[in-house]
């Protein structure tokens, strides 16, 4: 359970930028939430605060009752390692490591025995459909495959919450479908809490709930029906889904 209370973020400078102007919401465990909004609405800023990659100006974030903003830098690093997974927009893998090495890296950092972390990462790589690419270097994988490795890495520590920052931004339609279906399945089968930033309205059909942001504020919420999700899962990623044109406009 994530509880976000009156979260504010102001970037100081010559002209202060109020990226988040008091955002509050709760996310129950096992929910797949899409964060949407036009560019500059504060989606990524919000994700960074929730994932402890940045420090908000004020407000509070509780994860399963733990006030994660009170953690020291060192403790925050450890908290990210133990309880959070993060999928970046641009694959963000370590090129010197092969696929499974990238995937098991968090487990190695946790001090888990080698045999065990290879087994766990291997299982996850199988789940993301890459059991035949374990020892391939990152440069030998397609964009979609790289993103699936990133997802495996984000989940390998049995994270309480998976943050995904526009995970399909650089993927072709086919790979977008693969990644979104994978996230949906992870939510369905593993009860994984997922918070995904996207600017493509079509992708919201894979989520349970959509939080629409505008000008640093939560403007509205939308719940996606099970039928729509099933249809999205069944049909894969489609580009002909109607979108809300108002929210696609840049500020």
């Amino acid at each position: 359970m994530i509880e976000v209370k009156d979260l504010q973020k102001t970037y100081t400078g010559k002209v202060p930028v109020h990226a988040l102007k008091g955002v509050s919401f709760d996310i129950p465990s096992g929910q797949f939430v899409a964060l949407m909004g036009p560019s500059g609405s504060g989606k990524s800023t919000l994700l960074h605060q929730l994932a402890l990659l940045d420090t908000p100006t004020s407000g509070g974030i509780l994860l399963d009752g733990v006030d994660i903003l009170s953690l020291s830098q060192h403790a925050a690093t450890d908290f990210r390692l133990r309880h959070m997974g993060y999928v970046f927009q641009e694959y963000a893998l370590i090129p010197e490591l092969n696929a499974i090495e990238n995937a098991f890296l968090p487990l190695m950092l946790l001090g888990i025995h080698r045999k065990e972390y290879i087994r766990i990462a291997g299982d996850l790589m199988d789940k993301v459909g890459l059991s035949d690419r374990l020892h391939h270097l990152i440069s030998e994988l397609s964009g979609g495959e790289q993103q699936r490795v990133a997802i495996a890495r984000a989940l390998v520590n049995k994270s309480k919450i998976l943050f995904a920052d526009e995970p399909c931004a650089n993927l072709d339609t086919e790979n977008k479908g693969i990644v979104l279906r994978l996230l949906r399945k992870l939510c369905n089968e593993l009860g994984q809490t997922i918070l995904m930033v996207t600017h493509e309205p079509e992708q919201r059909e894979f989520a349970d709930r959509v939080l629409w942001l505008r000008d640093g504020r939560l403007e509205k919420e939308e719940y996606i029906s099970k039928d729509t999700q099933e249809e999205a899962l069944h049909n894969g990623y489609r580009t002909d889904i109607s979108s809300d044109p108002d929210y696609l406009k840049d500020d």
């Binding site: 994932a51 990659l53 060192h74 690093t77 450890d78 908290f79 990210r80 390692l81 133990r82 959070m84 997974g85 993060y86 970046f88 963000a92 370590i94 890296l105 968090p106 950092l109 890495r153 984000a154 520590n157």
Partner: peptide, 9 residues
């Protein structure tokens, strides 16, 4: 990215 996934400095 390494720091983001929880690697210590």
């Amino acid at each position: 990215i390494m720091k983001a996934i929880g690697m210590k400095e």
